[in-house]
């Protein structure tokens, strides 16, 4: 078995006096893909926001690579990638500028030409080869989404936390993204994602959240 990355035990979350998640437990190893499923209001996004560190309204254990996450927070920030409903792409900047900013925040050491070639390759892979320097507001909704997805090509991270990554992309894009997720897992990374898509990925694990917080199932 590969390394245990994320360890969750007894995780509960209460919001506005309503139990949203109760006593949740799961482990995520390197190479695993976990899909979080559930009806609207079952706390998928809340769970994602807790797991990636945006929200700290939870009780219970949350470990990253063998240590409580609040204690190796710096490492977790360095090693995960969060892709949310809002993509963090600025429409007045070009795809190149957007990606460069994201990579700089992540502390990617490359500078100048090396960084530029890496970004160009990533944009080419998501089908935006000649759009590197077009302002994002001039792109279509699907293309905007692809700019954000180019992060997955170029941003170094061990754990991908993806909240509804398949929104607004076409069928070909879905297939490419599925392949990318599998590729990431095969290289030892792991992926946590929510989606309503029926995913065609062998070895996919599912975490089923129910309404009312009490019920959840892992298979």
């Amino acid at each position: 078995m590969s390394e245990l990355l994320l360890h969750v035990k007894g995780l509960s979350c209460e919001r506005d006096d309503r139990m949203l998640i109760r006593d949740l437990a799961f482990d995520l190893h390197g190479g695993e893909i976990l899909q979080i499923e559930g009806p609207n209001g079952s706390g998928k996004t809340t769970l994602i926001r807790i797991l990636c560190g945006l929200s700290d309204d939870y009780e219970g254990e949350l470990h990253w690579r063998g240590q409580p996450r609040h204690r190796n927070d710096d490492r977790f920030r360095q090693e995960h990638l969060y892709f949310g409903h809002l993509t963090g792409i600025k429409t007045s900047l070009s795809p190149r500028e957007n990606l460069r900013w994201i990579l700089q925040l992540k502390g990617v050491g490359e500078r100048g030409p090396a960084l530029d070639t890496a970004i160009e390759t990533a944009l080419e892979k998501v089908g935006l080869a000649s759009y590197e320097d077009v302002p994002v507001y001039a792109l279509s909704a699907g293309q905007k989404r692809r700019v954000a997805l180019a992060r997955l090509q170029v941003e170094p991270a061990l754990l991908w936390v993806l909240d509804e990554p398949f929104t607004a992309i076409d069928r070909k894009g879905v297939a490419e993204l599925e392949a990318l997720i599998q590729q990431h897992a095969s290289r030892g990374g792991s992926v946590l994602l929510t989606t309503h898509h029926a995913l065609d990925i062998p070895g996919l694990r599912k975490l089923q959240l129910g309404l009312g917080g009490g019920q959840w199932a892992l298979n």
Partner: peptide, 15 residues
């Protein structure tokens, strides 16, 4: 091409 910028850089220790 950047040394470790692709998904090959699954291990971010290189960053």
């Amino acid at each position: 091409m950047g040394t470790e910028l692709n998904p090959a850089a699954v291990n971010p220790a290189v960053v």
